[in-house]
């Protein structure tokens, strides 16, 4: 059995009552945090402390707590999902921090992701981009065709699968210095454009999704590559390039 170890930390957390009121950074001291606990469990511990002190607990997004739902966000010490790569915040553990560390916890910052409360942001802009074209139209009234009737090259299937690994968490937007959503949109465009089923509507899809992305107020990609580094699912910049190709071809048609 590994001996468990406890650390004391100082937290600087963004507190904001609601979407309309101005927020500010509040400082909290939290003792006896197990280094085996996840970052979210640490926040649970803080909230128990706050409740026992009759203070308002910190609101933060979370759901599956196993790195697949994309709900947990948090900009921790200047990085999306904290000081590690290829993980969501629920997969970040307190062993990444040292005793007496000061940890900044902020919500995703983007015009398109307004803060609802404390660390919770509204990411429905992603939903609207998805609804603008991130699907394959299917007529369910006819005969269902066997999935294997349409051959897909292994290489394309793999690339599409990698793009489809995007969980829409918004870390790419949060970490991008321009608040650009192009890694997200690039992944969504790619996962369909690579497959024969998706190619049918590829032209309209990319035009509509990019238009919606621009309308939501996301910034422009300047190819810094920060999104690729911070993406918990390792979505590659290749997907942005593919979207650029698809869009160029679509707008010339």
């Amino acid at each position: 059995m590994a001996s468990s170890k406890f650390i004391n930390i100082n937290l600087k957390i963004w507190r904001q009552k609601n979407a309309k009121e101005k927020g500010k950074i509040e400082t909290y001291k939290l003792d006896n945090v197990s280094i085996e606990s996840s970052f979210l469990e640490m926040l649970d511990q803080l909230n128990e402390q706050l409740v026992s002190e009759r203070q308002e607990p910190v609101a933060f997004d979370h759901d599956c707590r196993e790195g697949i739902c994309g709900m947990c966000s948090l900009f921790i010490n200047g990085r999306a999902h904290g000081p590690d790569t290829g993980i969501t915040t629920c997969q970040l553990h307190m062993r990444m921090f040292k005793n007496n560390d000061t940890i900044y916890v902020e919500p995703w910052r983007s015009k398109a992701f307004p803060v609802i409360k404390d660390l919770v942001v509204d990411r429905t802009a992603f939903d609207r981009i998805q609804q603008a074209g991130g699907f394959v139209s299917v007529n369910t009234s006819g005969n269902t065709i066997d999935a294997n009737a349409t051959p897909v090259p292994k290489h394309d299937a793999d690339r599409a699968f990698e793009a489809a690994a995007c969980i829409g968490c918004g870390a790419c937007v949060a970490t991008c210095k321009n608040g650009s959503a192009m890694l997200f949109v690039g992944a969504k465009v790619s996962q369909y454009a690579l497959l024969p089923q998706g190619k049918v509507e590829a032209t309209q899809r990319v035009l509509n999704m990019v238009r919606q992305m621009d309308e939501e107020g996301f910034g422009n990609c300047t190819n810094t590559g920060a999104c690729e580094v911070e993406c918990p699912k390792g979505i590659s910049l290749e997907n942005i390039a593919r979207m650029n190709r698809e869009y160029l071809a679509a707008s010339l048609k």
């Binding site: 200047g78 321009n178 810094t224 580094v229």
Partner: peptide
């Protein structure tokens, strides 16, 4: 446009962890 996309800046940023200096200062 890119400045407008993030009206409220982060209090703490660590951009060198994920991108090159030149790419951020074009």
């Amino acid at each position: 446009q890119n400045r407008k996309a993030r009206p409220i800046r982060y209090a703490m940023e660590n951009p060198s962890a994920n991108s090159a200096w030149a790419s951020r200062n074009m």
